[in-house]
Amino acid sequence: MSDLLEHIAPTRLVPEGHYGPEGATGVSARAANTSASPLAAATLVARKGATGRLIVACAAAGLPLADAPRSSGGAGLEAVGTGPGRWLVLAEGMSGPDLVARLAGMAQGLAAITDQSDAHLILDICGERARAALEKGVTVDLEPTVFRAGDAATTVVSHVGVTFWQRDGATYRFAVGRSFAPAFLRWLTVSAAEFGFALAGTGRG
């Protein structure tokens, strides 16, 4: 690893700031769940044999679910498939318990629901060189004709488990386990620095 992070403790988040050549910003990243902008998260796991009925119940309540590695939105929620009959659901501006209560009302007893609001660092990564930077560690094919808006993947990046999905043409949203976030951010910073990397929302480290 370069000396870019030499003076930043590996146990702390990489501080917000600009890394790499001045005047260029090919990659931008922003932590989406900060104390200023809370983002609730919960896992929704279908009971045995109930995946189909859960999808029907949630669709009727305004949240379409796909039993696939895809993201979908509705009723103010964002759901991402992480495994057969399993989703990670995010809600902006809502508390964790409120999200759990909301999902429990939708799921009608067909799913196990667990508050995960404190579990992840949610990171939005964009910029015209974002894909070039991510390709250094993401082994899933990110070529736009293969990995399109709404596609999701749960995989390993630099030995750190992540779930990520493409929100629109240019933004990738990553959910990284909170205690692994410093290591992930170190990998991202070193990978994106050559393009000019602007990091926001992680505080002063």
């Binding site: 045995k48 044999g49 995946t51 189909g52 039993d67 057969p84 009959g85």
Partner: peptide, 8 residues
């Protein structure tokens, strides 16, 4: 692996 929906 296993039987049933999604291997469960």
């Amino acid at each position: 692996a296993g039987t049933g929906e999604g291997g469960r």
